[in-house]
Design a protein around this nucleic acid. Structure first.
Lengths: 185, 185
DNA sequence: GTCTATATAGCGATAGAC
DNA sequence: GTCTATCGCTATATAGAC
C-alpha cells in the first residue's frame, strides 16, 4: 500500500487518456510511452507487456470504485440520490477509468468486461435496499448505464475537459434525476 | 438501388460478425476474407480499403434504422411501446449492426460514433410527440441506451445466439417496460 | 471478379548498455 | 530505472496473373 513509483502512474494516466481520446487501436506502447514522457523500454520496465498495462489500469478502476462505494454509503443525501447525481459524467478519475475500461471491453479484452460487470454488480447490491423493488433497481441502473454509454461515445470537450454527448445537462438533468427518484424510491 | 453482389454482402456480414464476437482488433482483412469465403484480394476488389469496409457497414446500419423508423411509425401498439419493446436485444439485423457500430465507435472511428448519434437523434425525434415532455424523452432514451450498452458488453450466448448480459429478461422486463411507460407517456 | 505474391509499415517484445 | 537498437510478426495495401 506504499505509494507506487511516479513514472508508473504517469504511464497509466497516459494509457487511459489515449484510450479515451483516440480509442484502443491508437493506445500503442509507443504512443503511451511518448505521452508519459518515457521511452518504450522504460515503459516496459514497469509493465512487462501490454496485457500487464491493461491489468494495472483495471486494478486502479477497482480501487476507485471501492472508494466510491464508501462515499455512497455515507452520503448525507442518501445512496440513491448520490448514485444518480454522480452518474453524470464530470471527468473525474472514476469516470475516466470507467470509460477507458469500456473501450477495452469493446475491443475484446474479457478481463475489462468482467471488471465492469463486477463494479456494476457492487453498485446494484449497495442500492438494492434503498429502492422499492427489483424493477426500480433495473430502471435506476439502466439510466446510469445509458448516461455512461452516451458519454463514452461522445468526444472530450476541449473547453471544459468534460465529455460532451447527447446527454441532458443543467436543469434538464435536475428534472431527470427527480423523475427517476420518484419512479424508484 | 438494384441488389448488390452477393460476395459483397457476405463480406459485410463476416466483418460484422467478427466485430461482435471478438472485437475490432480481430476483425482484420484476412480474418474477414476467410470468414466470408473469399481471398484477401477478392475482398479488396469490393472494398478498396478497411475504411471502405467500415463505411459499407455504416451505410447498411443507416438503411436498417430507416426501415425501423417506418415500422415504428405504423406500429399498432404505439410508437413508445414499440420502441421500448424492441430495445431489448434479440439479435436481429438492426441489433447486430448497432453493436458492431458501437465497437467501431469505441475503437476510435469517428464516422461510426457520428452515425450512432444520428440514428439516436432520429429515434428521439420520432418519439418526442408521443411522450409527455422532454424529461420523459430523456428517460426513455437513456433506458434504451442502457439496454444496448449492457448487451454490447455481454458475450454472444452460444445456446440462443442472442446476447447475454446483466439485463432483465422475461417477467422482469415486462415490469420494467410498464414502469417506463407509466413514467413517460 | 477473384486469385497469389509481395511491398511497406507499425506493433509488441527482447537484449544489453548506461 | 531508463535508455537505444533491433528482431519477428502481422496488418494493410498494391501489382499483376488468370
Amino acid at each position: 500500500m506504499s505509494r507506487p513509483p511516479l513514472a508508473r502512474e504517469r504511464v497509466l494516466d497516459a494509457f487511459q487518456a489515449i484510450l479515451i481520446d483516440d480509442g484502443e487501436r491508437t493506445a500503442t506502447l509507443a504512443a503511451t510511452a511518448e505521452a508519459a514522457g518515457v521511452s518504450k523500454g522504460g515503459l516496459l520496465y514497469h509493465f512487462a507487456s501490454r496485457d500487464d498495462l491493461v491489468t494495472g489500469m483495471l486494478e486502479r478502476l477497482e480501487a476507485l470504485a471501492q472508494e466510491d462505494l464508501t462515499l455512497m454509503a455515507s452520503a448525507e443525501e442518501g445512496e440513491v440520490a448520490y448514485f444518480i447525481r454522480t452518474s453524470v459524467m464530470e471527468g473525474d478519475d472514476l469516470d475516466r477509468a470507467l470509460i477507458a475500461a469500456a473501450r477495452l471491453a469493446q475491443a475484446g479484452f474479457p478481463t475489462a468486461a468482467e471488471m465492469l460487470r463486477q463494479v456494476r454488480e457492487a453498485w446494484a447490491a449497495a442500492l438494492r435496499p434503498h429502492v422499492r423493488d427489483e424493477t426500480a433497481l433495473n430502471l435506476l441502473m439502466l439510466v446510469s448505464d445509458g448516461l455512461y454509454y452516451n458519454n463514452a461515445l461522445g468526444r472530450v470537450d476541449a473547453e471544459t475537459g468534460g465529455l460532451a454527448g447527447p446527454v441532458p445537462t443543467g436543469d434538464d438533468m435536475t428534472a431527470l434525476i427527480e423523475l427517476v427518484r420518484r419512479a424508484t424510491v
